[in-house]
């Protein structure tokens, strides 16, 4: 498993799906570990009842079917597929509504889905997903942003609750034109955040703020640190011409 995760850290992020399926075929015994630890670009399905798309992930999958957050039904239909409790489903519906507005304000489009389920230690787990893809808009020719936020919510203790957030952002940007050729930056980063918060504002408010802060930080790191480092690398390989020209003797 360690070697598999090592490989995933080195393979081109735009080939994540191929890498994962190659690993699955080499290590069939580790398939559930691989599927839960390797983040792959998000896929969507259409909810036939609501005529609305929803995002697929390991957390809304049962056998080969995926539960839609809109109709709470499995696609393709599945008898006695696993469902959240009524109370949790209520929270899930609300979370989907609010998160859709959040997504619209930051992403101006895209798709979002929220899934919740009970866990073994009296708390629950929530998974917030956002998928945004862009083709040919302005300078950007092709871009994709997939965000996965999984929050483990602990049981209430004296009016507070612990939240453990694990977030992954997968990003790819490609520009292609005749004068400058093809330029592609892609990557994924993963971050964790732990907080203990008063329940007075409610779970959704607490989780939402954590996600908003995390997304802001991750966007910033990708932009400043990760893309910055690759740009720095290019300049180390071949420093910009002004520097080179200064060292050139007059001819």
């Amino acid at each position: 498993m360690q070697a598999a995760m090592g490989l995933m850290r080195r393979m081109p992020p735009k080939h994540t799906e191929t890498s994962l399926s190659a690993l699955l075929s080499l290590l069939p015994d580790h398939s559930s570990d691989l599927l839960s630890q390797v983040d792959q670009p998000l896929q969507v399905l259409r909810d036939v009842d609501f005529e609305k798309e929803f995002i697929l992930c390991e957390y809304n999958r049962d056998a080969d079917s995926y539960r839609s957050p809109w109709s709470n039904k499995y696609h393709p239909p599945l008898e006695d597929g696993c469902l959240p409790s009524l109370e949790l489903r209520k929270l899930e519906i609300e979370a989907n509504d609010i998160f859709a507005i959040y997504r619209d304000q930051y992403y101006e489009g895209g798709i979002s889905s929220v899934y919740m389920w009970e866990d073994d230690n009296e708390g629950f787990v929530a998974c917030f997903l956002i998928k945004k893809g862009e083709g040919r808009r302005g300078y950007l020719q092709e871009g994709a942003w997939d965000a996965i936020h999984v929050i483990e919510v602990g049981p209430e203790q004296e009016g507070t609750t612990s939240y453990r957030l694990n977030s992954t952002v997968m990003l790819s940007l490609t520009t292609n034109n005749e004068s400058s050729g093809s330029f592609s930056l892609s990557g994924s980063i993963r971050r964790e955040m732990n907080m203990r918060l008063p329940l007075a504002d409610g779970h959704l408010c607490n989780m939402g703020r954590m996600i908003e802060e995390m997304e802001g930080k991750m966007r910033n790191s990708l932009d400043q640190v990760y893309f910055g480092k690759t740009r720095e690398m290019v300049c180390t390989l071949r420093p910009p011409s002004e520097v080179a020209q200064m060292r050139m003797p007059e001819s």
């Binding site: 959040y102 304000q105 930051y106 992403y107 101006e108 945004k132 862009e134 808009r137 302005g138 300078y139 950007l140 871009g143 994709a144 942003w145 990003l171 940007l173 520009t175 004068s179 400058s180 050729g181 330029f183 930056l185 997304e215 802001g216 966007r219 932009d223 893309f227 740009r231 290019v234 071949r238 910009p240 011409s241």
Partner: peptide, 27 residues
């Protein structure tokens, strides 16, 4: 070519990145 690579990088934050996810909401 190096200059065009630099230009691609400079274009990232303002156009490319913003198209995907804004720094702050529309509000």
């Amino acid at each position: 070519y190096l200059a065009s690579l630099e230009a691609s990088y400079l274009n990232l934050p303002d156009t490319t990145f913003k198209d995907l996810r804004r720094k702050l909401p529309v509000t």
